[in-house]
């Protein structure tokens, strides 16, 4: 298959790109023009339509890492590792975006970029765990071992998320403090809910598209490294033949 056929031009890729793109444009229109202004927070509240879908994608991505890691350790099929590492990369990017959009939202509303509450702390620690996930991949020379180690981190990391969340919440509740993080607020009007719905759909489609492209890329990378290894072997054999 030609590289062009594998990437941008394949019918599936094109269909995903178009559907994600069109939905994203509709979502952007709705979040900036259709959704009503928040009476308390003003225009800043609109970051919510980006922030929540990003958080959803981040956690969805890490859930996929978790499932694919278990599957890899059981089946030992490289496809599962490709799924896990593609999803982890997208997840890490979205976790970073969640933290950034959250801080930008927090500054005008809470008066601070950061608050050590359970949700924020858990997301930050999750970010560090998946940073470790990529570091262990990078620092292990043997490919098969790197996949196994990464799978172990992917599994433990995901199981750890609710545990971290719980421990941080308990830790905070024993520390009385002004309740700035309570999101409660009045129920959203329908137009806001619709906007959120479309935004969630747009981001999910975008995630599927990214996963699709990333998987192809990882597959190609693996094939290329297989080829390089085989080539190195062949050359070593040839050199041996000459000396012998």
């Amino acid at each position: 298959m030609s590289p062009g056929g594998r990437f941008g031009n394949s019918p599936t890729g094109l269909a995903l790109a178009i559907s994600a793109g069109v939905t994203m444009i509709i979502a952007l229109y709705m979040m900036f023009l259709y959704a009503p202004q928040d009476s308390v927070q003003g225009p800043v509240q609109r970051v919510f339509y980006l922030h929540l879908p990003m958080a959803w994608i981040a956690y969805l991505a890490f859930f996929i890492v978790f499932v694919a890691s278990i599957a890899y350790l059981i089946k030992r099929n490289r496809r599962w590792d490709q799924v896990a590492r593609s999803s982890a990369e997208v997840g890490l990017v979205f976790t970073t975006l969640v933290i950034i959009t959250g801080s930008l939202w927090g500054r005008p509303i809470w008066g601070t970029f950061w608050e050590w509450d359970a949700r924020l702390t858990t997301t930050l620690i999750l970010w560090f765990i998946y940073l470790g996930y990529f570091m262990i991949r990078a620092y292990v020379s043997d490919q098969e071992r790197a996949m196994r180690y990464a799978a172990v981190v992917g599994i433990i990391g995901f199981i750890d998320v609710p545990i971290i969340h719980m421990s941080v919440r308990w830790w905070r509740t024993l520390h009385p403090e002004p309740i700035v993080t309570q999101s409660g607020g009045p129920a959203m009007p329908d137009s806001m809910l619709y906007t959120m719905g479309v935004a969630l759909l747009a981001f999910t489609l975008f995630f599927v598209y990214l996963m699709y492209q990333k998987m192809l890329l990882e597959q190609t990378k693996d094939e290329l490294s297989d080829y390089n290894l085989a080539e190195a072997d062949r050359q070593a054999d040839a050199a041996e033949g000459v000396t012998a």
């Binding site: 620690i125 940073l131 620092y139």
Partner: peptide, 17 residues
């Protein structure tokens, strides 16, 4: 390849609870 670095990087966040 970076054993001294990898241990805390893996352990600290996971052991936080």
């Amino acid at each position: 390849r970076a054993r001294e670095v990898m241990l805390p990087v893996l352990l600290f966040p996971v052991a936080l609870p």
